[in-house]
Design a protein around this nucleic acid. Structure first.
Length: 415
DNA sequence: AGGCCTCACTAACCCACAAGTTTGC
DNA sequence: ATGCAAACTTGTGGGTTAGTGAGGC
C-alpha cells in the first residue's frame, strides 16, 4: 500500500478500501466499486496523506491534510503542542460509487486534492455515472432499518441529509484523545444516528454492512449503561476505580488486553460500556460463545471519560475485522489507552515496542486465555475440588498411591 | 496448478474416582 | 408410595494427540 493506486498503478492513491485492503485513486475507486452490488458495499475512506497506508480519520484544517489516527496523534496528540489545537474535521467512511465531484460536495477539501480528477482510466469506464440510486445504495441493503442505540430504529435514513450524514459526526469512541478537538456538527439528525454507525475498519463512523462480524456483534448499538451491562452480563459493576488504581484493570479485561495486541490495531468501537463503576471481573457471560467470540474477535477495552455525563466509560473496541491470527502487533493497546497513548498503533517507527514486549504480551495473552473459562461452568464444585488436588501423569489422573509427575498441591514429582 | 511440508492453532481425548442419577426390589 | 442398595453415569483438569488451515517451496 502506498502512494500509487494499487489498481491502475498510475494515479496517486487517495482512497483506502478496507475490504480490499487497497489504496485507490478516485477513479479506480469508482471503477472497482461499481462492479457489482457487493463491491458497492465496501466501505472506503480517504487515505492518510502522511503515511499513505492507513485510512484517514480526520482532516486537519490548519495543515490541510487528511490524517489517520496514528499520524493525527503524532502530529496533534501532545497537549503541549500548538498543533493540538488545530481544527479538524472528521472523515467518515462511505460506500457506493460517488463521483469525485460528489465526494467533493461532501468533503469540500477533496476539491483541493482532487486534481487527479477524471483520470484516463475513469474515462475508459462508461459505467461510471452515479445515480441517486447509487448514492442511496451507499447505505447498503439495510438502509431503511438502521439500528441505532437505545433500541431505537431509525427509518428511512434517506431522509437524513446525505451530506451531513456522510460527513457525520466525530463522536468516535475509541478514537482517543485526538478526537476531542474535533468539530462536531450540532443539532442535526445525524448526530443521533451517525455515532452509532461506525466503520469498523477505520475507527470512524461509517456504514459497514459488508462485515458480517459487525452484523452479529452489534454491541456498539447498545448504549450500555450500568444497568444494561448488568442485565447483559449478569455481574455487578463496582470497584472500578479501585480496580483501575490497583491494576485490576488487567483482570477486569481478561484476555482482551492481548486481543488488542494481537490485532492489527484497526477497527472501531464495537461496544461501549458506560459505568459509574466498571466491572469487577470479566463478565461471566451467560452466552459463553458470544463472549468468547467477542474476545477472540480482537476486542480491546478503551477507557474514556464522558465529560458531559461526568462518568468514565469503558469501551470494548474491535480493532480489526481482518486480523491475522498470529500476527501479533507490538502494542499493548489497553495499557496504552490507560496511559494516554494512541489508541491504535499501526506499524510505524514511532511504535518502538521491542520484540520482548511483544513476546511478553503474547505470553500474557496465552496465560489469560488458558485461565479463561467462559464456556465452562463447574457444576459440581466438589468434583472440581477433587480434580484440583488430584495427582496426574502427563495430565491424566492416576490411581491413589501410583507414581505421579504432577501434584497440584505440592507441585512436586514422585520420581 | 497440484503436491508436499512446516507451522500454528484448536478440539477431542485420556485418566481416576467421588458424587450424582437411575434402576430394581 | 416409600426406602434402600446396587449399578450406572457424570464431571473434573492438565497434558497429549489428531485434525485443520494457512503459507511457503
Amino acid at each position: 500500500m502506498g502512494y500509487i493506486c494499487d489498481f491502475c498503478g498510475e494515479q496517486r492513491s487517495m482512497v483506502y478500501c478496507r475490504s480490499d485492503a487497497a489504496c485507490l485513486c478516485l477513479s479506480c475507486d469508482r471503477n472497482v466499486h461499481s462492479a457489482n452490488a457487493l463491491s458497492k458495499r465496501h466501505s472506503r475512506t480517504l487515505l492518510c496523506e502522511r503515511c499513505n497506508s492507513q485510512p484517514a480519520l480526520v482532516r486537519c484544517s490548519e495543515e490541510k491534510v487528511s490524517l489517520c489516527q496514528n499520524c493525527d496523534w503524532i502530529g496533534h496528540g501532545t497537549s503541549t503542542s500548538s498543533a493540538s489545537t488545530h481544527k479538524k474535521q472528521t472523515i467518515n467512511c462511505y460506500s457506493g460509487c460517488p463521483s469525485a465531484s460528489e465526494l467533493s460536495s461532501i468533503w469540500s477539501f477533496v476539491l483541493d486534492i482532487q486534481s487527479v480528477g477524471e483520470s484516463a482510466c475513469e474515462q475508459e469506464m462508461g459505467l461510471m455515472s452515479i445515480t441517486d440510486n447509487g448514492i442511496k445504495n451507499s447505505w447498503g441493503p439495510n438502509e431503511d432499518t438502521v439500528s441505532v442505540s437505545d433500541g431505537v430504529e431509525t427509518s428511512n435514513i434517506r431522509d437524513v441529509d446525505k451530506s451531513s450524514a456522510w460527513v457525520g459526526t466525530s463522536s468516535m469512541p475509541g478514537l482517543g484523545p485526538a478526537s476531542q478537538n474535533l468539530e462536531r456538527p450540532t443539532g442535526s439528525a445525524t448526530n443521533a444516528v451517525a455515532p452509532k454507525l461506525y466503520c469498523p475498519g477505520t475507527k470512524g463512523p461509517a456504514f459497514c454492512e459488508d462485515d458480517d462480524f459487525y452484523e452479529d456483534f452489534n454491541m456498539d448499538e447498545m448504549d450500555l449503561s450500568i444497568e444494561n451491562y448488568e442485565e447483559l452480563f449478569g455481574v455487578t459493576l463496582n470497584h472500578s476505580e479501585e480496580l483501575l488504581e490497583n491494576g485490576g484493570i488487567d483482570s477486569l479485561f481478561g484476555t482482551m488486553e492481548m486481543s488488542a495486541a494481537e490485532s492489527n490495531c484497526q477497527g472501531a468501537v464495537a461496544a461501549e460500556v458506560s459505568s459509574v463503576g466498571l466491572v469487577n471481573a470479566m463478565p461471566a457471560c451467560s452466552n459463553a460463545a458470544s463472549a468468547d467470540s467477542m474476545l477472540s474477535a480482537k476486542t480491546e477495552p478503551i477507557l474514556c471519560f464522558n465529560a458531559k455525563q461526568g462518568r468514565s466509560s469503558l469501551s470494548f473496541s474491535n480493532l480489526t475485522g481482518e486480523s491475522n491470527g498470529g500476527d501479533y502487533q507490538e502494542c499493548d493497546a489497553s495499557s496504552m489507552h490507560l496511559m494516554g497513548e494512541p489508541p491504535w498503533c499501526p506499524p510505524c517507527p514511532e511504535a518502538s515496542y521491542t520484540s520482548a514486549n511483544r513476546n511478553n504480551a503474547v505470553m500474557r495473552y496465552k496465560e489469560k486465555k488458558k485461565n479463561r473459562k467462559f464456556d465452562k461452568r463447574v457444576r459440581y464444585a466438589s468434583r472440581k475440588a477433587r480434580a484440583d488436588v488430584r495427582r496426574r501423569v502427563k495430565g491424566r489422573f492416576v490411581k491413589a498411591g501410583d507414581a505421579y509427575d504432577y501434584d497440584p498441591l505440592n507441585q512436586t514429582r514422585s520420581y
